[in-house]
């Protein structure tokens, strides 16, 4: 074996694989130069290991701790801002989602009709009167039909569901019942068609500039009221147009 100075270094550090270590040990027996390198590197290693380390200033530990603390605060903000934005976006999405509004109306329909007596604030069978009452109580009404599909107007009130207040108009006929809601604010389009919530059919439509929700256990009742609403609205438009015509 010829002298391999790098391997001698590896030998000093115990970093050689066993076969190479054995070969080097044999070589050392006959090579004074390599033996001298082993001794010199071991001595150097001992001196280096005994070197006193440079001491940091006493302030460094405090500086490091302070740096970590400062890092901790903005890291919370880094998360908080997008999180708040995401929550706000979600709240807005939920508030304007027709599916969410449908669920709220279906829940309130059960809630009001589930009482022993209907919790109406105004009792009337007159659609025009109901419309005026709603207007006086802060809700722009659609043209409220007197009834449809054998159901008749009973009365109405305002119901608080979640974070919104809905105008709730009750219709009954035998065992059948229908809720007509006026939804304030804006509700997204998309799934504005018929939705099912448990045993109930829910329909959201835009008529006469307002958002109206219809809820009933019978799909055909919902359909009849949808027709009645749009017809009543069309009739009102025609009446207005006729009235505006010159004689």
């Amino acid at each position: 074996m010829t002298c391999e100075a790098e391997k001698v270094t590896g030998f000093v550090d115990g970093a050689l694989p066993p076969d190479e270590r054995v070969r080097l040990e044999e070589h050392l027996l006959e090579c004074a130069q390599c033996r001298a390198q082993v001794e010199a590197e071991r001595a150097l290693r001992a001196r280096l290991g005994a070197l006193p380390g440079p001491e940091p200033s006493p302030a460094l530990a405090a500086r490091v701790r302070g740096g970590l603390q400062k890092d901790r605060r903005p890291s919370r903000l880094r998360w908080a801002l997008p999180l708040a934005a995401a929550l706000a976006l979600f709240a807005f999405w939920a508030h304007t989602a027709p599916g969410v509004v449908a669920t709220q109306m279906a829940w309130d329909h059960d809630h009001c009709f589930g009482r022993k007596t209907l919790p109406a604030k105004v009792w009337t069978a007159d659609g025009a009167f109901m419309g005026t009452w709603l207007q006086q109580h802060g809700t722009d009404p659609p043209n409220v039909p007197d009834g449809a599909a054998g159901l008749e107007l009973v009365g109405g009130r305002h119901c608080s569901v979640g974070n919104r207040t809905l105008a709730h108009v009750y219709y009954t006929g035998g065992q059948r019942r229908l809720s007509l809601y006026v939804v304030p604010g804006w509700v997204r389009g998309g799934r504005a068609g018929e939705m099912r919530r448990g045993d109930k059919t829910v329909r959201i439509l835009h008529t006469g500039g307002v958002t109206v929700g219809l809820v009933s256990e019978q799909a055909e009742v919902v359909e009849a009221f949808e027709r009645a609403l749009t017809t009543t609205y069309a009739q009102a438009v025609v009446r207005t147009l006729v009235a505006a015509l010159p004689d």
């Binding site: 380390g53 440079p54 001491e55 940091p56 200033s57 460094l60 530990a61 490091v64």
Partner: peptide, 20 residues
């Protein structure tokens, strides 16, 4: 490990300010 890291950082940079 701050002291030991500082020792090596000092030997890397050769001055106390950069090491800190």
């Amino acid at each position: 490990h701050l002291r030991s890291l500082y020792g090596s950082a000092f030997r890397m940079t050769r001055n106390a300010h950069d090491a800190e």
